[in-house]
Design a protein around this nucleic acid. Sequence first.
DNA 1: CAGTATCCCATATGATACTG
DNA 2: CAGTATCATATGGGATACTG
Lengths: 128, 128
Amino acid sequence: MTVSPPLRRHFPDGVFSSDCPSRVVLDHVTSKWGTLVILALAEGDALRWSELRRRAEGVSEKMLAQTLKMLEADGLVHRHARPVVPPHVEYSLTARGAELAERMVPLMDWIADHAPAILGDAQTAATR
Amino acid sequence: MTVSPPLRRHFPDGVFSSDCPSRVVLDHVTSKWGTLVILALAEGDALRWSELRRRAEGVSEKMLAQTLKMLEADGLVHRHARPVVPPHVEYSLTARGAELAERMVPLMDWIADHAPAILGDAQTAATR
DNA sequence: CAGTATCCCATATGATACTG
DNA sequence: CAGTATCATATGGGATACTG
């Protein structure tokens, strides 16, 4: 069996391997709009297409569709279409998606907290 | 002060705004190689350029340089160059970078654990 | 060793128009 | 409303060669 260093195991190294499945999922999850969609749905409420479009400000229809399909194929997002006219479609996180979101929210919170300082630094550094 | 709904506050909404600083930082941090570099350094040891290249398997010199500069400008990664010949340069996380990494490791762990199942689903779904 | 400089391309992303 | 279809573009990203 492969033994890992005690205090800094973290990753079985596969993560860093270019053909590791994690890479694919990582790319999906950290894709520009994937992150935003998951985070938007992490609030708990199901959201409609048009709500998601507004929520993830700047997303194009094409990218939203693409992102949603990807996340749905990954089993992270559930699409619920009610057969009415006009169409009413709701998106929500699956159980698996919710698990993932649990890990993404702290990250996003931290980023939101520190982003101003981080970008401020750059300006400061550039100016002096 | 702004009052948020009790159980699902999460984001001051700014995160979803297209001109929010968080967007920029989010893009840096979740960039294809940014994530991998931060995770590699999260193990604790300072790494040299060549070690990082091997660690983030598949990264080109161009992208490694670009990613490193970006993370350095963000104050997440520290570059320590020892004035010897041949050059010896080490990269490590700053305190701020370590804080961020703390939030990224659980996410990556989860992804590493579930990636096979996630991608397996897609196959299963496609085949049946 | 640790990069920088170039050239080049795939594709991620965007804008617009159209439809069940 | 909730998409799909198309066309156009920017740029993320890669390969290669070169340098202090």
